[in-house]
Design a protein around this nucleic acid. Structure first.
Lengths: 230, 230
DNA sequence: ACAAAAGTGTTCACTGTACACCCATGT
DNA sequence: ACATGGGTGTACAGTGAACACTTTTGT
């Protein structure tokens, strides 16, 4: 506290983080929302968020919020934007740093979901949310589209093993659009970052579809040159 | 203050803005740095920055800093990233929101430059700077490259009237690379967002090069479909 | 046998890139 | 006349998009 007095003293402002958490159920892209537990706007739907503590970095705060609320560590997290409008939070002057996270929906336990009154919402059917969270969600959606076109982060939303039709469904959900499966598989496979397994997923079709895994090592080698996924 | 007590009270943290200001002198891409006027690190080179006040939005703070330091209003400003590491500023816990700005280098007066001990540095020869400002500058450079490929913001760095060779020089400076002038002019002109004037710039060559201006109206009409500049 | 999803090639248009010469003018 | 930078066209390769039929197997 002694050091900080070298700067002019300012009124209290709080720094918060809010996380847009994306999941994919095999068919639709989802965002995880919680029923807000504090005033103002108690009981309304909200992004998962919390205040940055003095002894943690802003990014660490985002990871902490995610871990406490979902039990998940080591998940994909990316800074999105700072929302710094003066009256965005009627409860006080709060500047919020929005992050978006990608998780494998199966890793998120129903137990925690109940405990935190959390719920997955189809990205196309987001209910009314507090403050400027709607803007955050829209921005995250857009950023996800941008990012996923050139970076191998879509895999974060899928199980370790996945099929090409599953991967295509994911991309179609993200872009709210459809792709030709011949062109799609050719393009994805030509990147040489997927490893085909000798095993088929059989529950979704009679013929069954081969499983693939994302090959992190191959990707790292190729990444420097820049890949185009879509 | 009454309202804010609804939130748990936190230790003091300050929110700052830092601006990476780009300019173009016809040949090289430049960034504007200032000799820092306060402790710590007084006298070292630094980005232009300042603290966010309680009665202004974060973005407004960035505009304020720019106006006070450069005298310029209505300039292109874009949020870059939040730097929120715990010990980034040894003077206290300061979370900084970095912005990058594009200005026409001729609009920046030498008078203000002296008053603020500011100086333009070639982007390829940035001197040692305080804190994490080096990272901010590198990130801004990268973001500028990304953005300028798909958005008509390069023109912000040029005078109202400019020639195709000048525009090409700008892109070459940004990408630290060279382009074929036939391909470059064909691509740019095919966007139909430049208006050719009946006037030539004569000081840089004997033949003279035609001036162009950016046609904001035409651009707006085309923008929705998405343009590729490079 | 048939329904349902998986898998697989070819053609065509377009876009990006490589490349070289003439033009206008000030000295 | 010549030196300097401005302006222009063509050919080729690579990429993206459209498009339909066969395969497998559970019922």
């Amino acid at each position: 506290m002694a050091v900080i007095t070298e700067y002019k003293v300012h009124d209290q402002m709080l720094i918060a983080v809010d996380c847009i958490i994306f999941g994919f159920d095999g068919k639709n892209l989802k965002a995880l929302l919680v029923k807000r537990g504090i005033e103002p706007e108690l009981g309304k739907w909200s992004l998962m968020g919390g205040f940055v503590q003095k002894d943690e970095s802003v990014e660490a705060a985002a990871f902490r919020v995610l871990e406490v609320r979902t039990g998940l560590k080591d998940i994909y997290l990316e800074q999105l934007f700072v929302f710094g409008a003066m009256k965005r939070d009627p409860g006080g002057r709060v500047v919020s740093v929005a992050y978006f996270a990608l998780i494998n929906i199966d890793d998120y336990s129903f137990k925690l979901m109940r405990e935190h009154s959390a719920k997955w919402f189809d990205i196309k059917r987001i209910p009314p949310v507090i403050f400027d969270h709607k803007k955050m969600i829209l921005m995250a959606k857009e950023q996800l589209r941008q990012k996923v076109a050139n970076h191998p982060i879509g895999f974060e939303l899928l199980p370790e093993k996945f099929t090409l039709p599953q991967l295509q469904n994911l991309y179609e959900a993200i872009y709210e659009s459809t792709f030709d499966k011949r062109n799609f598989s050719r393009k994805i496979l030509s990147l040489h970052i997927l490893k085909k397994l000798d095993e088929k997923e059989k529950s979704l079709s009679k013929k069954g579809a081969f499983y693939y895994t994302f090959d992190h090592n191959k990707y790292k080698k190729l990444a420097k040159e820049g890949l185009k996924f879509i």
